[in-house]
């Protein structure tokens, strides 16, 4: 399963056609249509925050519910920690690799979801520090096969 990063979804949902990444972003999403894609709960909440900021609270809430109900998306939740101690212990392993807190949270989800093969994002900083391969939408569209 391919997990789609919030940056890819933000470009799409805000229809940022002037962005130089727009065409590849749309092509990658078009090619993934029809298959089940993963979105981490942290990525989804990040997306909802950005959409709420730029398009209003109602839009953000609508989008959240729409992703939960989507047949084509699986929202990935990490195991719920029993305590703050456990959470710090878990997240520190990823923070120690130099990941931001958000990336560390996503890394925890990716690490606990064995079906994840690839993380799709424009951001190159977390590459090599996440537990799965990362690809940009441009790289994905250049591949002949994927999935």
């Amino acid at each position: 399963m391919i997990v789609v990063g919030s940056d890819v979804l933000i470009l799409h949902h805000l229809s940022l056609r002037a962005d130089p990444r727009w065409n590849d972003n749309e092509e990658a999403l078009r090619r993934l249509r029809g298959s089940v894609k993963g979105v981490t709960i942290y990525g989804l909440l990040d997306l909802v925050g950005v959409i709420s900021r730029h398009a209003g609270e109602k839009s953000g809430r609508e989008l959240y519910l729409s992703y939960l109900r989507s047949e084509e998306h699986r929202i990935l939740f990490p195991p719920h920690p029993d305590s703050w101690e456990e959470h710090i212990e878990n997240v520190m392993r990823y923070l120690a690799k130099g990941l931001s807190y958000k990336d560390a949270l996503e890394a925890m989800v990716l690490d606990t979801t064995p079906e994840v093969q690839l993380y799709l994002t424009w951001r190159t900083a977390p590459a090599g520090r996440l537990p799965v391969k990362t690809r940009t939408p441009s790289e994905l569209t250049q591949q002949r096969t994927f999935g």
């Binding site: 940056d7 933000i10 470009l11 799409h12 949902h13 805000l14 229809s15 940022l16 962005d19 990444r21 999403l29 249509r33 950005v50 959409i51 900021r53 730029h54 398009a55 209003g56 839009s59 609508e62 989008l63 729409s66 992703y67 109900r69 989507s70 047949e71 084509e72 998306h73 931001s100 424009w122 951001r123 190159t124 900083a125």
Partner: peptide
């Protein structure tokens, strides 16, 4: 349904999506 069909028009300036940290 498919959430990818939901497209929103930014009402608060032009959003900038960072491509890295």
């Amino acid at each position: 349904g498919n959430p990818e069909e939901l497209i929103f028009t930014p009402s608060t300036g032009r959003p900038h999506i960072e491509d890295d940290e």
